[in-house]
């Protein structure tokens, strides 16, 4: 079980955080890194792909799937038909969206079980504590403004490293 990358998009459709441990496109020849990683801190790239076509494609895919799933809602207005994840042959994208339009995505190998709880934890314990409660951090990011808060970045890395599913 491996984790490939972690992305945060805001309600303005901008990618405000990208953390990539294993590249999902052919651009970087790092496919050998798919063995389990014990500690992923200090590896991979941080905020290197925010303007990338990969980020835009990922966001586009999520956006379209959300639109489709809300249209294909059998229960009409009582409960929203929320997107949980989608899988391809090579990866599974776990998705969580907050009421404020923040979209958290985690890309893992296709066999990983539902990781929405991970994204919810990251939102409630890391994003809220380190970004929202930080007086110096914006709550609404401008274009080209990214999360570069080291405490947040290390926190996410450590939390994901500690998950049992990635440690066997």
């Amino acid at each position: 079980m491996a984790v490939y990358s972690f992305w945060i998009f805001d309600r303005h459709c901008n990618c405000i955080y990208s953390r990539e441990w294993v590249a999902i496109t052919q651009d970087k020849p790092d496919h050998q890194q798919e063995q389990t990683q014990k500690n992923i801190t200090n590896t991979g790239t941080i905020n290197a792909r925010n303007q990338d076509h990969v980020a835009k494609l990922l966001f586009g895919a999520i956006f379209s799937l959300k639109q489709i799933s809300s249209k294909l809602n059998p229960q009409e207005e009582t409960t929203a038909n929320n997107l949980k994840s989608f899988s391809t042959l090579k990866y599974r994208c776990h998705f969580f969206e907050t009421g404020t339009g923040l979209k958290f995505c985690l890309l893992t190998d296709p066999k990983t079980e539902n990781m929405q709880f991970v994204l919810k934890e990251i939102y409630a314990k890391l994003y809220y504590e380190k970004i929202v409660k930080n007086v110096l951090s914006p709550v609404d990011f401008k274009e080209n403004e990214y999360i570069d808060n080291e405490v947040f970045i290390t926190g996410v890395d450590n939390y994901i490293s500690s998950l049992a599913v990635f440690n066997n």
Partner: peptide, 19 residues
């Protein structure tokens, strides 16, 4: 309010209202 709203969603786990 801009910050408090995140605490609201983080603690309640609710999504957006429908009406």
């Amino acid at each position: 309010g801009l910050r408090l709203v995140e605490e609201f969603f983080a603690k309640t786990g609710l999504g957006r209202c429908t009406s």
